[in-house]
């Protein structure tokens, strides 16, 4: 038994849970924007604190992984890739592709923001 598919499955669950919690941040931001200039200013301050960047990094990791793993699930739903060896290969593929995606999105979010 390899446990690769087990690991990718439980990580998909955890990232899904994390993203649902992260959505609350977006709700807070939108509510603040809709509630007037003072609330918006406070939200902008809170959401641009350094600690918030950690949260964004976690959300980017969670989003990229969950997105790629979700595509794998869609492929499975068509009945493909369900052999033992295939599912183990696709577990690695999901991890690799999502890491690439994380780096790209992370660059856009953090390094890209400072570009002129």
């Amino acid at each position: 038994m390899s446990r690769y598919t087990l690991a990718t499955s439980i990580f998909n669950r955890f990232t899904g849970l994390g993203l649902s919690l992260g959505l609350l941040l977006l709700v807070y931001w939108l509510t603040a924007v809709a509630s007037g200039a003072q609330a918006q200013a406070r939200a902008t301050h809170l959401l641009s604190l350094p600690v918030a960047k950690l949260v964004y990094a976690a959300l980017i990791i969670g989003y990229c992984y969950h997105f790629v793993a979700g595509i794998r699930h869609l492929v499975w739903d068509t009945g493909r890739g369900l052999e033992r060896a295939q599912s183990q290969r696709s577990a690695w593929l999901v991890v690799l592709v999502s890491i690439v995606l994380m780096l790209v999105l992370g660059w856009c979010a953090f390094a890209g923001a400072h570009a002129p």
Binding site: M1, T5, L6, W76, E83, S87
Partner: peptide
């Protein structure tokens, strides 16, 4: 689709 079933099957079934 956690796939533990296919991973452990001693008869190599899916």
């Amino acid at each position: 689709t956690i796939m533990n079933c296919t991973d452990v099957c001693p008869k190599d079934l899916n």
